[in-house]
Amino acid sequence: MTPMDPDLPTPDAGSPVSEADLHGYVDGQLPAWRYDEVERHLASHADDRARVETWRRHTEMLHRLLDPVLHEPLPPRLPLRRPAPPLWRGLAAGIAIAVLSAGAAWLARGAFDRAESAASPVATAGPAASAAAQGAPVGELAGFALRAAAAHALYSPEQRHPVEVGADEESHLVAWLSKRLGTPLKVPGLKGVGYELVGGRLLPGDTGPVAQFMYHDASNQRLTLYLTRQPSAPGQATQPAFRFGRDGRVNVFYWIDKDFGYALSGSADRQELTRVANEVYRQLGGS
């Protein structure tokens, strides 16, 4: 073994195996052709083989120690987006206003989270909601709708693992998510409105597990349906309130119905989301 070259981790072909090579081997950071050479070296150097084994084992233990953090719910205090919209108010007044609105948005965010279910509805009840919701102003997202938008942004670009359980195992998916949410779930079939199920996943929410179903259309545009337990506030109207909001590029159509919160997110426009949301609402026990 030669001592580690301080500045050049890329080995030369045929050169003796260095300690840097052994790390590169464990970490998968060697050029492809070098692996064979390192393996030949390891075959005849028991001490290096032992080191490599131990490093691997420790790496794997570090994952076991720390990976559970990945699945914890995000603490609500983390800022999930840029606080101030920068230029649209015009450059002249820009700086002062941006600073002001950053502060306001930040304060409002907490208030919205707390007052989520008290927020004013933009429309009430049923498929008729679509018409009303389309005329209403675009709302600031809060509470579960904001989390739904974040979850959409996180998973919908994912190519390899967009879902945990695919549509090919739909009955397993339904059984699993029903069990975890503690209520029989139904996955809405949206083929009639042009969307096919990709699958679903379980996510941490602030009041327990949350289900996310993903759909795509023929052009691979993705929509996600986020489903969470959301006890209605006492005295709240029995008819669900439909709302529309936007967070960055993610549009969200959401409502609370019979102790569940539903949020349909996508980059599709309001009209399209409304169309699909009506179908979801109809299938999931709406009128």
Partner: peptide, 8 residues
């Protein structure tokens, strides 16, 4: 999430 970079 206003841009792909923000989503990142």
């Amino acid at each position: 999430m206003g841009s792909p970079h923000e989503a990142e």
